[in-house]
């Protein structure tokens, strides 16, 4: 049972559109978080190196 007491007509067009834009926005969110993770990783390596070099001084 996909719908229970939905009293609103969600509109067939609106349902299909959500599936389409949801997939698009989902991919954007995925890549954004992917790049953010990479950025954080790279940054952390960079910062570590920097602090290491500071320690050596």
């Amino acid at each position: 049972m996909l719908r229970n007491f939905a009293y609103l007509d969600p509109g067939t067009g609106s349902l299909i559109l959500q599936a389409v834009i949801g997939a698009m926005l989902g991919i954007i969110v995925f890549f954004r978080s992917f790049f953010v993770k990479i950025f954080i990783k790279v940054k952390s390596i960079f910062v570590h190196k920097k602090s290491d070099s500071k320690q050596k001084d």
Partner: peptide, 28 residues
């Protein structure tokens, strides 16, 4: 696009089972 989608499907008696994973719903 929402207006166009509504117009395209207006009057259609066919039941559509559109699937939207929760992460995509949250993205919307």
């Amino acid at each position: 696009m929402h207006a166009k989608a509504q117009k395209a499907k207006a009057g259609s008696a066919k039941k559509v089972e559109a699937k939207l994973p929760k992460k995509n719903l949250l993205a919307i």
